[in-house]
Amino acid sequence: MSDLRELYQQVILDHNKNPRNFREMADATRKVEGFNPLCGDHYTIFLKIDGDVIRDISFVGNGCAISKASTSVMSSSVKGKTREEADALFDVFHKLVTGDKGGDVEDELGRFAPFSGVAEFPTRVKCAILAWHTLKSALHEEKESVTTE
């Protein structure tokens, strides 16, 4: 059970049950869908971007606990951040869940720590990273949908 408890930490279970920023946004400036065909994770992320800053972010959809908690944590952590700051957070998160110990980026606030167990479950990495890829696409590309396959 110990590695399962590592994967399904209380914080993840909490975000899964009570996801933050879980709502539609009528006045969003950007709306991108992310889905994972393997398991059917499917989210729509709404953004209100003002110049270079993410003024507001929300999401709707459904999927596994890892993907939902990850999307919830992502939404809280990038709100109010610039594109560049959000990109840096992407890198931090990506390194954490893929078990990449190299590089100089660090999760200073430790807010991604609950996802450290994901690295032990290779098939679940794409569940955790889906929201972040979707965000990246929303910030930098014109695509309307993203998959992690």
Binding site: C39, G40, D41, C127
Partner: peptide
Amino acid sequence: HPHDIGTILDR
């Protein structure tokens, strides 16, 4: 979600 069930059963 089924995917979480699958992971736990796998363990």
